[in-house]
Amino acid sequence: MKNIIIILLSVIALSSCDEVIELDIQQAEPRLIIEALVTNQPGRQYVQLTRTIPFGAKEKVPTVSGASVSVSDAHGQVMDYTESTPGYYVPVEAFAGTPGMTYTLHVEVDGQTYTAEEVMQDVPPLDSLSVREDPEEKADPEEEGRFYEVLIYGKEPQETENFYLFKFYRNDTLFTNDGSWIFAYDDTILGGNIQALPAPLYYAASDKARLEMYPITRQAYRYYLDLSSNINNDGGMFSGQPANVRTNIEGGALGYFQASVLHTLETEVNP
């Protein structure tokens, strides 16, 4: 459906014109944003604290330093975090999350406490990646030299209801199509056999391709859908009314605390 809205908007764009405007708005007071991830891989856990800025502001989002951050599991084990760079907190002692475990995030900033709870999700890993040349793209590449597709192979477990977040990297750079695409899916219409599914971007020879798969909770899936609607909204004409993104954080902050097993596949594009 996301694609349809995008096509729709591009059709509208054909018959319309638009220009940059300054919004005459009452800017909101800054709010805390918490971006937190726990995975099963040591070194892949972080908590990032920032704040909102006025819409259209030229400054960078401010980081929040000096917070007290920790993650605890259902067995009562507490992992303390420390600030490694301004606003970016990592575990003092690296740990590996356990699938199915409930994790609780505690953040204390300026005397205010924020908490969130999430169960770490897991699915079987994907099988493999392969590389294929796309002759149509080669004839008229959008970006010079980039006409190789990376194909994904794997199985989707049909007996359970699963939700996924995918991240595609090209030479360690996350692909977001200029900050507009988020690859979150449910398995309602998916079959069990994923064969030669092309990744949504083209690669050049000797590019490094990496795919990260994060199994997520339904709530996290809806968080990413909300985020996508928030970013790609047309102002409420053909899309729904623009709205805030939901959160699983209690205490008045925005953002999300995600807990996933991380599955990674990598390949070098060697035609």
Binding site: A28, G179, N230, I231, P242
Partner: peptide
């Protein structure tokens, strides 16, 4: 929107 923020590199509206 009356504010904006970053999440995982995405620019969301508040």
């Amino acid at each position: 929107p009356v504010g904006q923020y970053e999440f995982d590199g995405y620019l969301a509206n508040y």
